[in-house]
Every structure is written in C-alpha cells, then in structure tokens.
Amino acid sequence: MSTPQEADERNLRWKRTLEVLSVIGPPLTVATALLVYFGWARTDAQAKAMGLDVSLFGYTVQDFILRSIQSLFQPLAWLVVIGLLWLMLDRAVSRLLAAARYRKVLRRSAIAVAVLGFTYAAAMWVVVATQPERVLLYVPFLIAAGLVVGAWGLSVRRRALASENSSPETGPRALERGLVFVLVTLLLFWGTSDYAQALGRGAALDYQERSNLLPSAVVYSKERLAVTVPNVREDSAGTEAEPLYRYSGLRLLVVSGGRIFLLNDGWTLSQGRVVVLRDDGSVRVEYGNPAAD
C-alpha cells in the first residue's frame, strides 16, 4: 500500500508529464504536417513532370516524410549556419554598444542597414509580382533575409538610442516582432515549397538522363499484357497448353500502393510512358542489377 504522500508525488509527476506533452504535442504535430507537405510537394512535382498524378503511387504519410528529408536538409542547414553567424554578429554589436564612443556610429550604420534591408526585400517582391508565371527559386528566401536584416537594423538603432539616453528600450514591440516573425515564416514556407518542387522536377529529369541506372525488370505473365511502349519486347516463354509471356526492356521505377511502376528503356519526359502493373501475384517480375546489363 502506498502512502498518501507517495500518491501525491505520483499525481504531481503525471501532472508535469501531461503539461510537457501539452507543450510538445502541438509543435510535433505542426512539424509532422510540414514534413508531409514538403514530401508531397516534391513527389507531386515529380509525378506531374512524368505525366502522372501523385495519387497513383499510393504513398503513405511515412513515405512523404522520408521524401521530405532531402527537401529540408539544405534549407535547414543554411538557416542554422546563418542564425549562428547572426548571433555572433549581434553579440559583437552589443559589446560595441557598451562603449560610448561607438554608439553614434552604430546608430547611423543601423539606419543604413535597415533602409538597405527593407529596400532589398521590396525590390525582390517587385520582381516576384511582375513575373507571376515564373518560379523564381530562392527569391522568397532573399525577401525574408531582407526583412530580417531591416528589422535587426531597427533593433540596433533603438538599442543605441536607449544606451545614449541611459534608459531601457520602451514601446510596444511585441506586435511588430510577431508580425515580422509570421511574415518571415510564411516566406520560408513559400521558398522551401518551391525548392521541394524543383527537386521533384529535377528527379524526373534525372530519370530521363539516367534511366539505364534503374534496376532492370523482366515481367512474366500467363496472359498477354499488350504492352505497346517503345523498346519493350514481348516473347513467348511457354507452350500452347500453358502460355507464358515474357516482357523485357523495362526498368523499375517504384513499388508502392499495391502497384509496380515500370519505365521503358530510353524513357523520356516528352514521349515516354509508365507501365503500371498490379502487385498481386498475377505477374512475376525479375529484377536485375543495371550494371550487369
């Protein structure tokens, strides 16, 4: 039997655990949703470039999450590196603000930095607005960078004025910072989505240029499949009593959603077609090492 004190301690631990889960839960949900979206955006762009629809592949949430890693790795790595460099610069500026002789120079420099940052962001936005039909890769990231630099310049100017007046920085800044944060977050989301779609289109182009590096596939079927795509050869491998048809000249694209997706040798984005077979045992497929072809 546990004492009332032990029971109270267990209840307190459960309460703290639930509080932690309530705080961690929503961020994990948002992160998972973002991973799924970016994985879907990459796969959708690849499927459209190949003349397909992403729903045909029957990918699961886990599949989309795994496909999003490549889309997020470089943007996140650059974001961390730039964030660290910015923190180092901001700390150096804070040390200079502590010295009275640098405050005036820093205040004037901060004004110039703010004007340049906001002007650059506005110029990049004009470029996007005047060319809505084009996908300008990395431009959303550049707009976000201009906004961050401009907002930081204003912050340094205010800190310099506060140091000169020997008074803490006053004024409601939470709303301003919140709006900048939301806008920068949306721009990063936009830029990462464009980057993921570009990776998808690049993957489709890569299949065209290096389809010979995909695993070779030979399909055996008791019924004629009537595969009419170029460079696919149909041979009879059975007898009249037990017919068996053999199809060669195919390359494995992916097996997903209860289907086998195959490309023909020499597949191209403009003229190639994708052969889709049911992965239900009605056909037998032999896969081979492309290096052995």
Rank of each mutant, 00 (worst) to 15 (best):
V283E: 12
L213T: 14
V180M: 11
L253Y: 02
V184C: 09
L35W: 11
R246T: 09
G39V: 01
G257V: 00
S2Q: 13
D206Q: 06
V232S: 12
A145M: 06
Y195G: 15
L147I: 01
G281K: 00
A203Y: 14
D280V: 00
S282R: 00
T192F: 13
S193D: 10
N231G: 09
L205C: 06
S109P: 05
A217W: 03
L188F: 15
E9W: 15
L183F: 13
I111K: 03
L56Q: 14
E176W: 10
L277K: 03
A226V: 02
E209N: 10
R251F: 03
R134V: 08
M88T: 14
W125P: 03
P172K: 11
A196P: 05
P243R: 05
S236H: 14
S166T: 03
F38R: 04
D44I: 06
T170L: 12
S256R: 08
D279P: 03
D265S: 07
G249E: 03
L179R: 12
L252G: 00
N165A: 15
L34A: 10
G272D: 04
A47P: 00
L116F: 08
R13S: 14
G153T: 03
D265K: 01
R224G: 09
W125H: 04
V126I: 10
A122W: 02
L175T: 08
T29A: 07
L250S: 03
R158H: 09
G25A: 06
Q208S: 13
E240L: 11
M88G: 04
D280I: 01
Q208H: 12
T60M: 04
V276S: 08
A41F: 12
V180E: 07
G258I: 11
R273V: 06
V128K: 09
L137I: 06
Q70D: 11
V182M: 06
N264Q: 13
K222Q: 12
D63A: 07
A77R: 11
N11D: 14
Y287W: 01
V36N: 05
M124Q: 11
T43Q: 03
A7D: 02
L277W: 01
L35Y: 09
R103L: 04
K222R: 14
W14M: 13
L79I: 02
L263G: 01
T60L: 13
